[in-house]
């Protein structure tokens, strides 16, 4: 088995989660790489929406470095603005959202506003919702990419930016007035999570080969549900790695980033 980096594992897992004949609403970086890899392998008729307003772009000029990058509009089949992208989504034409954030809780709610202090005088302020809050509300299924750390997988968020299953009650999302069905997968480099249908709590589905459920629980502040069918995460083949490195991110902008600390 070939050697691969943590970001390559995340991108590969993201690709595996996406099905063909769907539209995926992507953010910058790994979501685009995951979607490109899916297009090159099992999902040739998958298309991407970029929030600045393009649908079905052909990323032949290299990886867009921003969701508003002019490259994200190359040979698109539809190009408008943010209203165009989000209204297609609100209408039901975006199957997947790829989002991230600073903190996630057991019901898949995500914080990307602030940590510590108060809303009006936070300890650390992050950029804000951006597209994430709207994508989590109205794409059909939300896929979160997170760093697997105790301080990020928390009991209670400092701020709920992107709606997940809220308090876990069956009617939380309906009472919130949102349209999408909610959290679907949480991808990290060491584990893939889903959500239990009954309790809408995060459930460990797959672990990195060599890791155990206990190893993953150690990195999460809340109690995880463990799937009765827990398996190892599938590892990328040499061909997958070639596609990721040579076709998807040849400059290594996102796949070759150094992991913090």
């Amino acid at each position: 088995m070939a050697e691969y980096g943590p970001f390559e594992m995340i991108a590969y897992t993201g690709s595996r989660v996406l099905e063909d004949e769907t539209i995926v609403f992507v953010g910058t970086g790994l979501p685009i790489i995951a979607s490109m890899h899916a297009q090159l392998t099992h999902a040739p008729n998958l298309n991407m929406i970029f929030e600045a307003g393009s649908l079905g772009a052909v990323l032949e000029q290299g990886l867009p470095l921003s969701v508003g990058d002019t490259r994200a509009f190359r040979k698109a089949v539809y190009a408008k603005g943010l209203c165009g992208a989000f209204e297609l989504t609100q209408r039901g034409y975006a199957d997947y959202a790829f989002i991230g954030g600073a903190q996630i809780d057991m019901h898949g709610n995500i914080n990307s506003h602030f940590e510590g202090g108060t809303y009006s005088k936070p300890g650390v302020r992050f950029p804000g919702s951006g597209g994430a809050g709207a994508m989590a509300a109205n794409c059909e299924k939300t896929i979160a990419i997170m760093a697997l750390e105790k301080r990020r997988f928390v009991e209670k968020l400092d701020f709920v930016t992107s709606i997940g299953f809220g308090d876990g009650e069956p009617d939380y999302r309906r009472k919130a007035g949102v349209m999408g069905s909610g959290p679907y997968r949480v991808i990290t480099n060491q584990a893939l999570f889903g959500f239990d249908e009954e309790t809408r709590r995060m459930m460990l589905l797959e672990v990195l080969p060599g890791k155990t459920a206990e190893d993953i629980q150690e990195l999460v502040s809340f109690e995880l549900l463990i799937s009765p069918d827990l398996t190892d995460m599938k590892e990328p083949t040499d061909e997958d790695l070639r596609l990721l490195r040579e076709e998807c991110d040849p400059e290594g902008y996102f796949l070759k980033r150094k992991v913090a600390k």
């Binding site: 609100q90 506003h113 919702s129 809050g133 919130a176």
Partner: peptide, 9 residues
């Protein structure tokens, strides 16, 4: 809109 609801916004 169909967003903001159910979040702290």
């Amino acid at each position: 809109t169909r967003d903001h609801g159910g979040s702290d916004m």
